[in-house]
Lab assay of single mutants.
Amino acid sequence: MPSETPQAEVGPTGCPHRSGPHSAKGSLEKGSPEDKEAKEPLWIRPDAPSRCTWQLGRPASESPHHHTAPAKSPKILPDILKKIGDTPMVRINKIGKKFGLKCELLAKCEFFNAGGSVKDRISLRMIEDAERDGTLKPGDTIIEPTSGNTGIGLALAAAVRGYRCIIVMPEKMSSEKVDVLRALGAEIVRTPTNARFDSPESHVGVAWRLKNEIPNSHILDQYRNASNPLAHYDTTADEILQQCDGKLDMLVASVGTGGTITGIARKLKEKCPGCRIIGVDPEGSILAEPEELNQTEQTTYEVEGIGYDFIPTVLDRTVVDKWFKSNDEEAFTFARMLIAQEGLLCGGSAGSTVAVAVKAAQELQEGQRCVVILPDSVRNYMTKFLSDRWMLQKGFLKEEDLTEKKPWWWHLRVQELGLSAPLTVLPTITCGHTIEILREKGFDQAPVVDEAGVILGMVTLGNMLSSLLAGKVQPSDQVGKVIYKQFKQIRLTDTLGRLSHILEMDHFALVV
Results as ranks from 00 to 15, higher is better:
V160L: 11
A226I: 09
F111P: 01
D245T: 05
K102T: 10
Y163V: 00
V10N: 12
W43I: 08
K267V: 08
V189W: 08
E9N: 13
N113W: 00
T193R: 09
F197P: 07
Q243H: 10
G11L: 07
R121K: 05
I214L: 07
L220A: 05
I127T: 09
W54C: 06
K72P: 10
H203I: 03
N194V: 06
T235V: 06
D245C: 14
T193P: 11
S61P: 14
H218V: 13
S175L: 07
T260H: 15
C244H: 01
E213S: 05
H218K: 05
S23F: 12
R132A: 10
H232R: 03
R190H: 06
Q222G: 00
T68Y: 06
S175P: 06
R196M: 10
Q222C: 00
E9H: 10
L136A: 05
F197V: 03
I76H: 08
K247Y: 06
A183D: 04
P70V: 04
G259A: 03
G153P: 05
R182I: 07
T141L: 14
H66S: 10
E144W: 00
N93R: 05
N228E: 00
K36A: 10
S147V: 00
P49V: 09
K98D: 10
D129C: 06
H232K: 00
G26P: 06
I92D: 00
A159C: 05
P229K: 01
P78Q: 09
V160P: 02
K102S: 02
L42R: 14
R58D: 12
L241T: 04
K269G: 06
L251I: 12
R125D: 05
H203Y: 08
T68A: 15
M250L: 15
G26V: 14
K83D: 10
G96P: 11
I122K: 01
L42Q: 11
S227E: 10
L124S: 12
P41H: 11
L56D: 12
K271R: 14
R190S: 07
S174L: 02
G148C: 03
V189Q: 06
N194K: 13
K30Y: 10
G11Y: 12
K269I: 03
I240F: 07
Y163W: 02
K119G: 02
V252T: 12
P138S: 15
I44Y: 11
I80L: 05
E29S: 13
G162L: 05
E128R: 03
I84D: 08
G20L: 14
L56W: 09
Q222P: 01
E171H: 04
D179A: 08
E187K: 12
L230T: 09
D249T: 07
I76C: 09
L124G: 07
E270L: 11
E131F: 01
C109V: 11
G205E: 09
V178R: 10
E37S: 15
G134M: 10
P145D: 04
I143E: 00
K137Q: 11
L105K: 03
I76E: 07
I122Q: 00
L156K: 01
G263W: 00
F99K: 09
D133N: 13
A207S: 08
A155L: 02
T135S: 04
T13W: 02
K72T: 03
A155F: 04
L28Y: 11
T87G: 05
P273N: 06
P16I: 12
P192S: 10
I95E: 00
N113Y: 01
E144C: 02
K72W: 04
D221C: 02
P229H: 00
L154M: 06
I166F: 07
R276P: 10
H218M: 09
C52H: 04
A114N: 05
G134L: 07
K25P: 11
H232N: 04
D238W: 08
G205S: 13
T5P: 10
R51E: 08
P273D: 08
C52V: 05
N149I: 01
S3L: 15
A69R: 11
P200Q: 08
D86H: 11
Q7T: 10
S3E: 10
Y223F: 08
V168N: 04
A159T: 15
A38V: 13
R51W: 04
I143F: 06
E128S: 07
G116F: 13
I261T: 15
K211H: 06
K247M: 15
E187C: 10
